[in-house]
Design a protein around this nucleic acid. Sequence first.
DNA 1: CCCTTCTTCAACCAAATAGTTGACAACAGT
DNA 2: ACTGTTGTCAACTATTTGGTTGAAGAAGGG
Lengths: 125, 125
Amino acid sequence: MAADPLSRVFAALADPTRRDMVARLAGGDATVSELAAPYDVTIQAVSKHLRVLTDAGLVSRTRDAQRRPVHLEAEVFDLMTKWIERYRREAEERYRRLDDVLAAMPDDVEPVPPAQDRPAKEGTS
Amino acid sequence: MAADPLSRVFAALADPTRRDMVARLAGGDATVSELAAPYDVTIQAVSKHLRVLTDAGLVSRTRDAQRRPVHLEAEVFDLMTKWIERYRREAEERYRRLDDVLAAMPDDVEPVPPAQDRPAKEGTS
DNA sequence: CCCTTCTTCAACCAAATAGTTGACAACAGT
DNA sequence: ACTGTTGTCAACTATTTGGTTGAAGAAGGG
């Protein structure tokens, strides 16, 4: 099991069903059966997804009679956002600097040759 | 295999080793063996991690003699950021509105009581 | 031409995950 | 005190994942 919080949050959101649940919970709290309704799986499976989201700190549970309403905890998103933004910014800054270097480079200095594609199967988007 | 791009990106970053690689690539391109050096796993394992990151569109590969330098593609982060921001904002907005409602609520209306969790493993009658 | 370096491919293994069914706990309403 | 509703727990299964070893592809340097 992934011990660190960031891994848990990313892993929790790597599943489309769980992302859809989060999306719907952003519109308001819901019970397990309400959440389960749109999906073609058992309510137990949904209960398991909810456990993953809870362990990741993305949702919290309360009690209302037999029901266990699910509540979205939006603050945890910040963990991810901060991580993502940090490295994206760092990388983009580096490219900007690289562009400056290239722009300032005299004509007779050849940059890295194009390195053409080999016939292999691999495809990069 | 997760078909949708968003799932692939989240899943790719759910692993601490892969996140660390991304973090280091934000500082500049690197070869596979350079990337592998700090970790206590085989170079093949690192190569597999790289494949996951590539499939997620987070990195791209080129060729330089025998080497296959790895390059961070920062734009893909936007996919996640957009998703995250959308639902966080939505949820937070909803709470703000809820706060307004609560603030405007007369004193004699009680909100839901705390209702703490109970273990309930094997209770008989 | 070998030979070494850098990297990937293939087969295999252990552990985690997402799903299932079946049982049962907690509570509400007669 | 039953009965139905809501949800969880436990055990089982199939698939995916992250790791291993061993072999092989691709390119450069004697």
